[in-house]
Computed example of a mutant assay.
Amino acid sequence: MTDAMPLAFVVDDEPAMLDIITFALETQGFETESFRAAETTWTALGRTRPDLIVLDVMLPGMSGMSLCQKIKAKWDIPVVLVTAKGDVSDRIAGLEAEADDYIAKPFHPRELALRAQRLMRRAETGKVIVTSAGGLELDPANHDVIVNSERVPLTVNEFKILSALVSRPNTTLDFAQLLLLGWGESDRIGEREMIKAAIYRMRHKLDKASPGSSTVIESVRGTGYLLRTE
């Protein structure tokens, strides 16, 4: 990894697609390394930690979905899943694997590059944000939540959603607002499923660290979510 440019791992078994993705990223200031299998990518992660991984779902041997789960269990590296399938259930499966974003083939290279740039943009800086609800503390510098003195790592989108809820306690944020805050878009197919999957993962992580702490995130049926402090 260089100091000048963020490093992206690009994983796809199709040479033409590798060329398209690497070109799109390199024109936007990324350094890239290309891989054609999940196994070789995993080995490379043992020596180098990239800033971003663009990962095809359909790979020979280990699937991209399985590799994403392994990566997220060990490191907080932003992952964009690339899939040939455009149905909602496939996208939900990717989000349940804790991918930070997804893009379906065929796609415009510029769109992919913009999604990658957005994931790299760490706007949250400064002091720790504290809320009394459930004893949650958000650390923008590390993108994690502190509960019961234990740090719980979150994905970029999970952190953005939780930050939004914390900054507006006892206020219902609808699905469109949460989508905009988490993914930078106000309208997207399957938006409710995306938000629900992210909230489900956050609740699971919070409960694992401190049983019952996730109950401060309440579902407002048919509308969205709120963070309860009263």
Results as ranks from 00 to 15, higher is better:
Ile189Phe: 13
Glu33Tyr: 05
Pro109Gln: 06
Leu227Asp: 01
Arg118His: 02
Ala93Met: 04
Gly212Cys: 09
Gly61Met: 12
Leu165Phe: 06
Leu180Met: 07
Tyr225Asn: 06
Val152Tyr: 07
Glu26Pro: 00
Ala97Asp: 06
Arg203Ala: 02
Val130Trp: 07
Lys74Ile: 10
Ser186Lys: 07
Val156Gln: 00
Ala16Trp: 15
Met62Glu: 08
Arg122Cys: 03
Leu226Phe: 10
Arg168Ile: 03
Asp13Leu: 08
Val152Thr: 13
Pro15Cys: 09
Ala84Trp: 12
Leu119Lys: 02
Ile161Ala: 02
Ser214Trp: 00
Lys160Val: 02
Glu191Phe: 01
Thr229Val: 12
Ser167Glu: 15
Thr83Arg: 00
Arg203Gln: 03
Asp100Ile: 04
Thr125Ile: 15
Asn170Thr: 08
Asp90Ala: 15
Met58Asp: 08
Ser149Met: 08
Ser132Met: 07
Lys74Met: 09
Lys208Asn: 14
Gly126Thr: 05
His108Ser: 10
Met58Tyr: 04
Met202Tyr: 03
Tyr200Gln: 12
Glu26Arg: 09
Ile21Trp: 02
Arg221Gly: 06
Ser149Asp: 11
Cys68Phe: 10
Glu193Lys: 12
Leu95Cys: 02
Thr125Tyr: 12
Ser186Arg: 09
Glu96Trp: 04
Ala116Gly: 01
Asp174Pro: 01
Ser219His: 15
Arg201Asn: 14
Ala84Ser: 14
Arg49Tyr: 10
Met17Arg: 02
Thr215His: 06
Thr48Ser: 10
Leu138Lys: 01
Val145Glu: 02
Gly64Val: 03
Val145Trp: 01
Pro109Cys: 05
Ile129Ser: 03
Leu18His: 08
Asp56Gly: 03
Gln177Pro: 03
Glu158Trp: 00
Leu119Thr: 04
Glu193Phe: 02
Glu137Trp: 02
Leu25Thr: 05
Leu59Glu: 00
Val145Phe: 03
Pro50Gly: 03
Asn170Gly: 11
Thr48Asn: 11
Pro15Ser: 09
